[in-house]
Write a protein that binds this DNA or RNA. Structure first.
Length: 136
RNA sequence: AAAACAAGUCGUCUUAUCGCUGUGCCGCAGGGCAUAGAGGAAAGUCCGAGCAACACAGAGUACCAUACUUCCUAACGGGAAGGCAGGAAACUUACCUUUCUUGACAGCCAGUGCCACAGAAAAUUACCGCCCGCAAGGGUAAGGGUGAAAAAGUAGGGUAAGAGCCUACUCGAAACGCAGUCAUGCGUUUUUGGGGUAAACCUUAUGGGUUGAAAGACCAAAUAGGCUAUCGCACGUAGGGCUACUCGCCCGAUGAUAGCGGGUAGGUCGCAUGAGGGUUUGUGCGAACAAACUCCAAGAUAAAUGAUAAGAACGGGUUUUUUAGCAAUAAAAAACCCGUACAGAACUCGGCUUACAGACUUGUUUUUUUU
RNA sequence: GCGAAAGUAGCUCAGCUGGUAGAGCAUCACCUUGCCAAGGUGAGGGUCGCGAGUUCGAAUCUCGUCUUUCGCU
């Protein structure tokens, strides 16, 4: 359903925006540390997000750097954690371009899955859009 | 054919759209195209190695691990075969025997410890009892109840009463002979016969240096409070190192010169050709080994190998229809519903252990049917 | 990735050189009080995380397994 939406897009920068290359992932330990100590947070079940507001220096980026996290405490098996992370990543990849087409993206973003059990794909999709819309 | 047990094999597939990681090619570049991309346990981290760094004169003690025998293996606490002991089944009146299966299976005749309650007594024993004796005292361990366990068991002789005190058989120990590579088995002889517990301390034999890829090497940025080499000084002292300790051994305070360079954050290598896999043949009871041919098959780093949709396949259930049948039921078709496990590489191998929907193969046993 | 500790009553802990499983708080009943609290007396409550083994006998010893916690960078 998202594929149909994006065919109408005219922005040349966002033409290939469904990709999720390495530059859009949050890898630097330094930034992660800063994010968890200074970042603002927001909660909509089952997601908790942390974000750093956009700095003036790196304003050129179209999308923020994102990390996903599923705590080991709630999901013991590596298989379950991997699956949830993959689903979250997929949802974010599909919906990010129409979310950030208007608003200015933050510098860094962390999405944490805090539920105790697994949810369906559609449910996660709705909630993810909601939580990202609420972000200033 | 069904069930049980044991061993082994496999463990969903296809298409569409959108992605991720590695490699190759094209492009000045954004990027594009091609191609490859989880397991039998990748898991637990329980053993054994490779590899790396540090330590390396050596000896003893301590500590840790292992423990029937022979073999396999790079090695092992793994595996194979055999022995012994226990269990089950078949056969049998019963034993024997056969098959399957389980076993941390060295040593309590080296020493020390422990054995609740009950019981006279729990290990050089003595309450009641029995016997001798007037008595004092002595000799006994047949009988008694307890207990998980009571000083080899049964029968006979013997005696004051008794006792391996003696005899026969059985069990156990030692020596010798024979068979076997060995564990051990069989036979003979001997006088020998005083529980259990080493998953109690321990003894004996064998083995073990420590730390783990977050090991370690290199690159650029950055530069000392550290390190190395040479010379000097000097009491080889203070102190430090070599495994926890002892002996013993080694280094060794400060000054000068030269070189290297820590923390922090990042990149490259380590890092995917290896005690590798597959097939065939040969050797061996077997684990396994040898030869020939052939194949190259993930390499991430907050961590790729996916998400969504549709369909197929397989298995199970329900309903309906048809066929066979008196019936129970069986077979086929259609529709609907449910299920498709355990689980995700993190340096690499060899094992072990644990988890696992379901399907298949082989062997053994039992039951039923047919011949 | 590598390594270590713990699991016992509803809760916090003893018992762990093998021999009947205990304390405090909590719960319930009674006494005391006009009533409540405190106090006193008594009672109930345990697959000793789970599964095997050694032993006559296991919370304790050994092995496997599950869960929780902690350390190393």
């Amino acid at each position: 359903m998202f594929a149909l939406q994006f065919e109408k897009m005219e922005n040349p920068i966002l033409a290939h925006s469904q990709g999720f290359p390495k530059s859009e992932r949050l890898c630097s330990q330094k930034v992660i540390k800063e994010l968890f100590s200074k970042g603002s947070s927001l909660f909509v079940y089952p997601f908790k997000i942390l974000y750093l507001p956009a700095s003036t220096l790196s304003a050129s980026a179209v999308f923020p750097q994102v990390m996903f996290s599923v705590p080991k405490k709630n999901f013991k098996r590596a298989v379950d954690r991997n699956r949830i992370k993959r689903q979250c990543r997929e949802i974010y990849r599909l919906c990010k371009s129409h979310l950030f087409s208007e608003k200015k993206p933050p510098q860094a973003l962390a999405i944490i899955f805090v539920a105790q059990k697994q949810e369906t794909f559609e449910f996660l999709q709705k909630k993810m859009e909601k939580v990202l819309e609420q972000m200033p």
